[in-house]
Design a protein around this nucleic acid. Structure first.
Lengths: 262, 262
DNA sequence: CAGTGGTCTAGACCACAAT
DNA sequence: TTGTGGTCTAGACCACTGA
């Protein structure tokens, strides 16, 4: 029995003010929410829905595009439209920069992913000196040029985040921080060795839809926003010693923070 | 001179693999990014673009729908398609729950908005006892029923966030916390008066596209994600005494946190 | 190969906004 | 009334997938 003759989906209400394609989207969304279609499962094809509802193909496609915009489904050319599975999320704990986590040989990302049983990778490594943007310059205390470290992180082959660290040249130039591999404990460990004992971090969080560039870099599905995180590291002399600009696939992350009630 | 004859937009590349509607979207996006069209400014009408590019109307509309999905533009029926202005954002600082902020008479939201020169409102107030969801029950330590306090916050008439606080009945029932107006300093002040001195908060942050319900409640434009924040308040005996579930219009907020480097 | 979604056309009628 | 976007139709051809 086809999914359409089995009453999974209802009829249209011709008296309703609601546009036909919205009604169809509503019915599909409700069916998904109720678990009638499970994660990864294929929805009825456009042709089947055209038959079922007696509407034109563009109308059905409009419905699908609504659901795609909501991040509920994704289309695969030649295969069908599928309920988008909720991918495993990476939890960023508020103690992720605790000094004790820097004592081991590998980077935090690698250690944590290994522990979670996933396969971590870092690629697109680029380290170079460049002119600081207005924003970065301000955050670092009016520096003109900076050392920029770019990299992209993947979990099980899926890109989940890319980040750029900016450091003042007078701190980073000629040190291991300017090398592709900053060594055990990452650049924060190196900063402390260089005498910049870290005091605290400030993080700013925004969420927005990705630019086409970000869609490419993170291979984002339709309807997936990004989390934009800007972290500034301060040493014990209250000097900003690093700014890290990170863009994360929002469906791959949950951020956790702890706030004092003081 | 029309904006189209003045070279604001280029021609299509018929040899390109890129779909025509994507090429048009690219050109409009670039023109917006370069400031050729400023915030709030009207883009060429569908009809003008049909003429300019020599394509059908659906093709032009497809381009617009891409830009809408990116949150770059919004359409106004009967008026045109406009570059979406970046609204003012509310910054949530990491010390926003510091005890000193509870000493005044008004709620944190009101005080802060007044200070920023905007006009704050709270509506859709609802306070009732109800069955705890599985998630809320777990977070509050296996309680069956809770006191739920729902409310929506607006700035200058624009809804920016709605939130529900959940409290265990044995704490909240019969207290001022169960009243629509919890009094000066809000429910956190009442909790402390009741002997639950607050120790710290834990916050979890996610970003995703809004449900149709959330689009309605927050009057969200297309292409605007939501930030979903779940905060748990712990008293000095490490007991969770409140869970607050908040959904915020992502274009209205930037969250700020401070992390120790300990 | 048949079935799927991706793109595109050339219309139509409607509802809303400004004049 | 004119111009705008919103909805919908009935096609067409294409590219990709899987049997």
């Amino acid at each position: 029995m086809s999914p359409l003759s089995s009453g999974l989906l209802g009829d249209l209400d011709p008296t309703s003010d609601r546009a036909v394609f919205r009604q169809i989207a509503d019915q599909l969304r409700e069916a998904i929410d109720r678990g009638r279609f499970r994660e990864g499962e294929k929805l009825p094809s456009e042709a089947e829905l055209v038959d079922h509802y007696g509407v034109s193909r563009m109308t059905v496609r409009n419905s699908f595009s609504i659901l795609q915009g909501e991040g509920l489904v994704h289309a695969e050319h030649g295969k069908g439209v599928f309920v988008r599975p909720r991918p495993p999320v990476r939890r960023l704990a508020s103690d992720r920069f605790a000094r004790r986590h820097r004592e081991q040989g590998k980077s935090a990302f690698i250690v944590e992913a290994d522990a979670a049983g996933s396969h971590p990778q870092v690629d697109s490594l680029e380290v170079k000196e460049e002119k600081a943007s207005q924003d970065i310059s301000t955050r670092l205390g009016s520096v003109r040029r900076v050392l920029a470290r770019r990299r992209r992180y993947l979990l099980d082959g899926r890109p989940v985040e890319f980040a750029t660290s900016y450091l003042p040249l007078d701190i980073a130039r000629g040190t291991q921080i300017a090398e592709p591999n900053p060594g055990p404990g990452g650049i924060y460990a190196r900063l402390e060795e260089l005498g910049h004992r870290l005091d605290h971090f400030e993080e700013e969080i925004r969420a927005r839809m990705p630019s086409p560039d970000e869609v490419r870099t993170l291979r984002l599905a339709a309807g997936v926003p990004v989390i934009h995180l800007i972290r500034t590291a301060f040493d014990t002399e209250k000097r900003p010693v690093e700014v890290c600009d990170t863009v994360m696939a929002a469906d791959a992350y949950v951020l956790a923070y702890q706030l004092p009630a003081t």
